[in-house]
Amino acid sequence: MKINQDKCIGCGNCTYVCPMGAIFVNPRTGRSTINRDECVECYACYNGLSAENLPPGVARLARKIFSLLALRFEPEPDICPTSAFEPDELVWPRVVRRAFSDPRVPHESTGVLGRGTEEVKTNELTNRIKIGEVGVTIEFGRPGVGARFREIQEMSRALARANVTFEENNPVATLMSNVAAGDIREDILDEKVLSAILEIGIPVHRLEEVIRIVQDVERRISTTVILGVAVRCDENGEDQIVMPILNRLGYDPMRAKTNLGLGRINLRPFSMFEAQPKMGAKPEALSDA
């Protein structure tokens, strides 16, 4: 991402919206500037800020006059008043930053928007996680910290030493030079991303061991780590096995993504514009819910 210095009026709105805090108003030029080493190419500034088209010269003059009168020109906090952000042509290895940071860019490896795979979200069709197995998602850099691949490699190597197998379609795994050793390509190790996820599938009896490895590595790296643990429920829709293990390890999960098991091999056939929504109609079902 770059900021057109001819358009920027230095209002500072963008300095707040950067998830990495990588934008600052340069006191020498009075224009917003991006710290390129910290920028993860997430495009939050470009996509999130509404772009308006005030003439930069007029806006600067207004700011100067207001300033002389000890008043402040203050645009709405979620706009760039002069549309100063311009996407940059990204080349390897910097392009990796965007692939892991901008959620609107699908990974070539997965075809899924975002930083992971379908996990158990389509498990009733894919059978990715079976009874007696757990899927563990180890997410780095969230919220708002960011991660470099060198730190992620610390974790992937530790897990590989324990003979843990990585989900092969996971975006980080596709960037490994040696999957068995957990080595990530040398040329991207210093690249920073908003977040990245390692995904593994293990038998339930190895869950405690794996979580302890993750906890140990987490203490040595400077980024943040969040864990997700995916399970296949029993025939009654319950999980009697994994939750007790998590409780024993000191976790008390309160939130989960629950797959309702509604997927079928064949989708119900629809034409694209069949059945228009009834706007404002209160459905009958709501009255007894």
């Binding site: 158990v120 995916a230 296949r232 429920c233 025939e235 999960p253 309160m254 309702l260 098991g261």
Partner: peptide
């Protein structure tokens, strides 16, 4: 699930931000 008469197929727990 109870209201809709559904049986959960799979779950993905968040272990939270505790650490």
């Amino acid at each position: 699930c109870e209201y809709a008469g559904l049986v959960r197929h799979s779950m993905n727990y968040s272990l939270g931000f505790g650490s």
